[in-house]
Write a protein that binds this DNA or RNA. Structure first.
Lengths: 243, 243
DNA sequence: CGAATAAATTCACCCATATGTACGATCGAC
DNA sequence: GTCGATCGTACATATGGGTGAATTTATTCG
């Protein structure tokens, strides 16, 4: 069950991150199509907790830096080593595509770090973006690090949906793809989940953590270059991990 | 009206900021005394929105760096100039007390930047901390920048409570204190709001924004040094503003 | 390996809460 | 100053959502 008011808090945070301007109650209410009264309650609550403030009445709400202070401390929970960001940054330059580090989140994979391609046509992904673990290259690079029985218990929770015509829609199909990935030495996906999107990924275990790196972009650019990209990927990982 | 689930989201954020460790559903539920089922709903929601993830099932939830990304961007809404942090940092060293920058938030003043004293006994304040605008030195340094009619409309909203025996509990008392502050050239408060706490503050207008700087600490340390502290304060402001 | 224990997840019901409505404050136009 | 329009705030009410109990899933220990 989705907790609506929890989502609303996040939407307000994201709203300010997007517009980067103070906003009045009316603006926010209109933007989200929320009733004024509800918006009032929510904004008041955030203000009472010290996350918003109003420089002067009717001049709009500002987020306080408290978000930043809290987020900074909370994100130290399990910081990635410095070289991982350098790695994806370098890979993005080399390949010209969007590169991300993914981590497991139940039946999904979350991107915990992303460097976007600078190309006009590119994979548009953000930190926190989630994709099905079984239907994406980044996800399958995570699954490769699971023991068989761990995968099995995951499979039971997956709802196999036909996102696209190449989507694997059974446990067997996924397992088969994993075997193929092992043979070829890297994971790949051609629009298994998102239309027109292709990805090349490899596992990236760091300490106890099972992560993966993925290079992703439009099918027509990745196309037959998967093997070359995989080599670039693996070499970069070795290079940066050494440091 | 307080939106409970909104508060809960913030509490979870603050929880992770405090403990800096992954936490399981059960731990979080027990910590807050929330029912498991409700906690489940909330954590699932945050996970779905990409703010939490579970590296492996039952190993607990981690915050994703998405908090950081969003908070960083949202904090650009009205960034303070760089010199203000240097200012309070320097002042904290000079005075040995906690120093903060305050902004108006309705009938309250919010701290939007804080450098805490390193003394064992000190004013314990955080970014986002809120205090009544009329019963604190930082707040009154804000009120000094209001026009009379703006103050009047604020006064109507204030609920005058006797926080302590020196708390001004009428409009006249507040206005009298503001006049005294003008004469002496700075604002002060001796436990008007918080027991044992004394503060010295001056206005800090930046562009259109009305802010204030406050040096605060235990009454016995601030005591008769208010005039000296005020001088230090004013000189520091001049020095840093010039840059 | 199997039973006991603990944790996670689901679900239906009832109550707390989000909202419609009304009121008051403020602002801008003339 | 006066009026109209707009925005913010208070409150009662119906209904969406939180919770307790039941069920399923995982983990621990004999």
């Amino acid at each position: 069950m989705i907790v609506r008011q929890a989502v609303n808090v996040l939407e307000i945070l994201e709203y300010f991150a997007r517009v980067k301007k103070p906003a009045t109650l009316a603006e926010i209410a209109d933007h989200f199509g929320w009733p004024r009264s509800s918006t009032f309650n929510l904004l008041t609550t955030l203000a009472e907790k010290g996350y918003l403030y109003e420089p002067r009445p009717r001049a709009g709400y500002y987020p306080t830096p408290r978000w930043l202070v809290m987020a900074r401390e909370a994100s130290d929970v399990e910081p990635l080593p410095d070289w991982t960001h350098a790695l994806i940054s370098s890979l993005s330059t080399e390949t010209g595509e969007t590169v991300a580090i993914a981590a497991p989140a139940g039946v999904m994979a979350v991107f915990i770090d992303v460097v976007e391609s600078s190309a006009a046509i590119r994979y548009f992904a953000k930190v926190g973006h989630r994709v099905p673990i079984h239907a994406t290259s980044s996800g399958r690079a995570l699954l490769l690090q699971y023991a068989k029985d761990e995968r099995d218990s995951l499979y039971r929770k997956i709802e196999f949906k036909q996102y696209n015509h190449t989507t694997p829609i059974s446990i067997d199909a996924v397992e088969a793809e994993l075997r193929k990935s092992l043979e070829r030495g890297y994971c790949q996906s051609f629009a298994d989940y998102s239309r027109d999107l292709a990805g090349v990924a490899v596992p990236l275990p760091i300490g106890e953590r099972r992560l993966s790196v993925v290079v992703a972009g439009p099918e027509y650019r990745i196309g037959d270059k998967t093997a070359a990209i995989a080599v670039t990927l693996q070499q970069a990982v070795e290079r940066f991990r050494a440091k």
